[in-house]
Amino acid sequence: MPRPRRRRIVTAKRGFTLWALCVFAFLYLPIAVMALFAFNKPSPAALAGFTGSNVCDIPPTQLGNLTVWNGFTTCWFNVGLHDPTYIPAILTSARIAAGAAIVSTLLGLGAALALARMNKFVRVPFDSLVYLTLVVPEIVIAVASLIFFVQLRNYVSFFPPLGAWTVFLGQVVFGASLAMLVIRARFVGMGDTLEEAGYDLGSGRLATFRQITLPRLFPAILSAGLLSFTFSFDDYVLPAFTNGTTNTWPIVLYSAVRFGITPAVNALATLMLLATIVVIAIAGLVLRRGRVSASIETEETATAPVAMR
């Protein structure tokens, strides 16, 4: 009976491969379509009535049907990169996100360090409060932030009005919790034996922190920073409440949808996708050393004891 059984296994394997391909298609096809349509030309009808040299100069309302493929052009990238509202909005978002990521990571690191040394009666309530900010719906935090920030200005004269600063402060609430969660996850597995080893070998508290604790936490710190950057950058709900007159990229994009999006948005999104891939690749390379040694460990343990004897 070996043959039919083997055939069944092969069929099953093919089935799973197909399923996996379907899942990947579901995940990435929209992104691929988005990137493809960044290169789409206006409809033939719109082109027929156009006399200029650059097809992307056609006003957005007269572009015709852009949901079908009309032909290849790269001019949308040029339009997108020179758009008077998109580019400042992206820069604003990037600035807020960078600030929020740095401050969140610092706060999260401090909280993680403190929590590791706290006694249970302080740690458990503190921990639950931090987790709470992650599970409370964002809309609740957004409304609360709005009311709080507006009220605060009545009592604290130097508190900034609604704008980039309040968006930043609101996002740090979430970002710091997230960063703490990520760093603490690393911390829990570490124990403090290595710190003890540092003290034992004659390095003081600060030197041990710098030479032992920080390098070990670095991967977690890096991923915490990247995560809070991403969360802040594409956040819509909180900025929508606390932005005042400042326009972030998601807010601009959302209002643009209502007046019809040109492929210039696709072009910018594609560029951001590329930037993301580059950043993640760099982060991956930086973190790679740790992973490599971990994978070698599993191979080596099998052979090394034999080699030793």
Partner: peptide, 20 residues
């Protein structure tokens, strides 16, 4: 006296080597 000012050194149970 803190551990880093003592003239003793320890070999830990799980070695506690610095992995980095």
């Amino acid at each position: 006296t803190p551990p880093y000012r003592r003239d003793v050194n320890t070999v830990f149970q799980q070695y506690a080597l610095f992995p980095h």
